[in-house]
């Protein structure tokens, strides 16, 4: 077993592209679920729109990357309004149902031949990330320290990605310490109480859905420029629940919860997969019991199990506050 290799990969996973993408998706979910109590089961849809908004604008319409980023934000806003208008006056189940259905419907549309001219069908699009890397101000070549040795372009992507994470976190922090954030939290606790105190609950929920959706869409943007491609099947509903798991792992309604959670999430995933792959490669685990393709499936099972167990036993996250746990037990 190559433990050194496994540990290096695990360390890299903590700051890699996926940690950024899921940190942004989870920050968005934190606004929805952690602060407002909205059950958005369609964050994958926002992430997908974020990726495709940029890709289609640049690749199909031949516009600049900046217009692509604008399209990414605009499409997330429209998607949030589309999902929010019919559901946010109703019980929270309806939002969950409509969002999960819409994100899956969106994926089907994106991969369909019908829209293939715009989206590239099931193949997706590539060749739109050139502008992003052409403005890379970092010196060329390959450099770094320890296990973190990347090409100049990767460093550029990581810099932009983590800057976005930092900015989103800062924005959420500024909002949540304000009276606006207080209204959001009161809606999470009891929306009728908020209503009885003169707060327009529907309006706040809509703002929350839009804000969290846009942040999630930025995650999609990062994923698109980092992989230099978009493919519909990378944006299945599982993304949403990976992000939920990351969020709950780090702690809901905590400023750094989603960021720490996303890093931790990929550390755990990378470590277990590294160990499993090594074990299969060295025939510690017989290949009749598990093949290397099945390792990828184990990831999803682990996430499902982890999500359920966290929600049952540690809904306040692994760094959660005892006092909050006591409140939950009431």
């Amino acid at each position: 077993m190559d433990w050194g290799g496994i540990f290096e990969n695990t360390l890299r996973a903590a700051i890699a592209k996926d940690a950024i993408v899921f940190a942004l998706a989870a920050i968005g979910l934190n606004v929805h679920f952690g602060y407002t109590g909205l059950l958005n089961f369609g964050q994958a849809g926002f992430v997908a729109l974020g990726a495709y908004g940029t890709a289609i604008t640049v690749d199909y319409y031949g516009q600049s990357l900046w217009l692509g980023v604008l399209a990414t934000i605009a499409s997330a806003v429209v998607f949030a309004l589309l999902l929010g208008v019919p559901t946010l006056r109703l019980r929270t189940d309806y939002l969950a149902i409509v969002t999960i259905a819409a994100s899956e419907g969106l994926r089907l549309l994106l991969r369909s031949v019908t829209l293939g001219d715009f989206t590239g069908g099931s193949t997706g699009l590539s060749g739109f990330a050139g502008d992003f890397y052409s403005i890379n101000p970092l010196p060329g070549g390959r450099y770094g320290f320890g296990p973190f040795r990347y090409s100049s372009d990767t460093w550029w992507m990581l810099t932009v990605g983590w800057t976005l994470v930092l900015l989103a976190t800062l924005l959420v922090w500024a909002l949540m310490r304000s009276p606006w954030g207080r209204v959001l939290k009161s809606i999470r606790e009891d929306e009728n109480a908020a209503r009885s105190l003169g707060k327009n609950v529907y309006y706040y929920k809509m703002q929350s859905l839009v804000l969290g959706g846009v942040i999630g869409a930025l995650g999609g943007f990062v994923n698109a420029v980092a992989t230099r491609s978009v493919q519909p099947d990378n944006y299945g509903t599982a993304i949403t629940f990976f992000a939920y798991t990351a969020l709950i792992l780090g702690g809901t309604a905590r400023i750094w919860g989603p960021v720490v959670g996303a890093m931790l999430f990929w550390v755990v995933i990378s470590f277990t997969e590294g160990v499993l792959r090594e074990a299969i490669g060295n025939e510690v685990i017989p290949s009749s019991f598990m093949s290397t393709t099945q390792v990828g499936q184990v990831r999803f099972m682990l996430v499902g199990l982890g999500l359920a167990l966290l929600m049952i036993f540690r809904p306040q996250g692994i760094f959660g506050d005892r006092r909050e746990l006591a409140l939950d037990a009431r």
């Binding site: 009276p179 209204v183 003169g198």
Partner: peptide, 26 residues
């Protein structure tokens, strides 16, 4: 509102708060 402090519960009650707008909150 269980997971808000007592004082936050109280402050929520005031109407006409300027900081309750999205942009002004910033």
């Amino acid at each position: 509102l269980a997971k808000l402090s007592v004082i936050e519960n109280m402050k929520l009650g005031a109407v006409g708060q300027r900081g309750e707008g999205f942009l002004s909150a910033l």
